[in-house]
Nucleic acid binder design. Sequence first.
DNA 1: CCGGCTAAATACCGGTCGGTATTTAATTAG
DNA 2: CTAATTAAATACCGACCGGTATTTAGCCGG
Lengths: 241, 241
Amino acid sequence: MARGRPRKTDPDAALDTAMKVFWERGFEGTSMNDLSTMTGMAKPGLYANFGDKEAIYAKAMERYCSAYAGPMLEDLLRSDDSLEITVRRFLDGVVVSATDTMGPKGCFVANNLVECAGKPPSLEALGRYVDEQRQKALAARFQAARQKGELPEDADIKSLAEFYSGQALALAVMARAGAPWTTLYRFVDTAMTLLPAVEAEETGGEKPEIRSEWHEGIIPLTPYKRSVAPGRRPVVYFKAK
Amino acid sequence: MARGRPRKTDPDAALDTAMKVFWERGFEGTSMNDLSTMTGMAKPGLYANFGDKEAIYAKAMERYCSAYAGPMLEDLLRSDDSLEITVRRFLDGVVVSATDTMGPKGCFVANNLVECAGKPPSLEALGRYVDEQRQKALAARFQAARQKGELPEDADIKSLAEFYSGQALALAVMARAGAPWTTLYRFVDTAMTLLPAVEAEETGGEKPEIRSEWHEGIIPLTPYKRSVAPGRRPVVYFKAK
DNA sequence: CCGGCTAAATACCGGTCGGTATTTAATTAG
DNA sequence: CTAATTAAATACCGACCGGTATTTAGCCGG
């Protein structure tokens, strides 16, 4: 089996590269020739494997979610850690991925929100959907926390969810603008002081839809540790799927 | 005097339009033909009056600062109102300008930070400079507040400045993604709860450079009023220069 | 009414855009 | 070795890009 000329480029690896190029340069800032040269896959191959430019962009976004956004929301919903730790890990995860020197700066979703506002829905809706899921996940976690007694009875779940969802956007933009991780972790520290504090035990809250394709990527694990040694960069650990 | 064929388009009005087009569509998303048709000024006229595309973009950014960012920082530094009110007005100003139905959604500066990261310094530096000035202005105001006794002695000025500067970015992105002003005002309310509270009287703190050209635009005035009637949109008042 | 001045308008430049048709190379089944 | 199959590689399409040279239109002082 497997007749015909063998592939030069693995489509999966090509999509991974395409994701990073779109993430780095944006939709308009990336040309099909860019994608072709960066992936090593000739233009006709790109169209044959993925479709037109918009389709590639959408697939790139989905891949980003599988590797980054999805697992973070997953952790937010599934983790047994305290609210404090879980939310902190969520924001730390944004910092880590947004300042990772191995990848583009910032957050693909945030970039999409800014760049593609007012563009065709096929582009505009991508980031908005993820943003909405993120907010729902936060709200669900806060809801559960309130029922568990981790938050006071009068805590405003919606406001808290909107707030911490917004912090992720702020971190993303600051990272893209070149802010160092030290600054961003300080920012997280500050933002975390807004979280009301109490203590008890239980569960609940309805969980938002998390696309199953999003679970393929690397996901945060760890006994979570922050600021291990002074000056040493604290790390949120990931493992391959 | 005033010989030759009369101008069809006032260059100042043209630049104002160009600013809004760039603000709305971004640098790459705007073509010279777009600018020509939107401003009513033919392409050679644009080049003669403003220079090439990058130069127009830079002038558009400067104009944005004159009309929006600059006056807000000015108010932040010069206002005699309490810290609470001043910071709140700053964030409310972001909400108002970022959701104004008469203009593009979001913030030109934030858009630039996201889109132009990694692009030539002539583009990249524009937003970063404004962002830096904003943070300095906030820091100066917090510094003054601490000396006046509006903040506790141990308040972390740098962290607070970074935090509230980041809130402006978060608001800008959320607004651009279509969040309604009701949501954004709720967000401001939440963010304001992070500000430590005390009371007393005095002044101080060095003020950052605010470009004089930035003072030409509309500036916030007002006996400041928030949430006048339930359901009615609270307004930050502006006056023409 | 004319000649000079200024800006608008048009046409045009080479280059690149997203997208595709065509040709060539590499492999397997018979 | 041949035919079929698959993908790579090249060349190419019309449209539009940023930028400019050239022509045309409108107003002035004389």
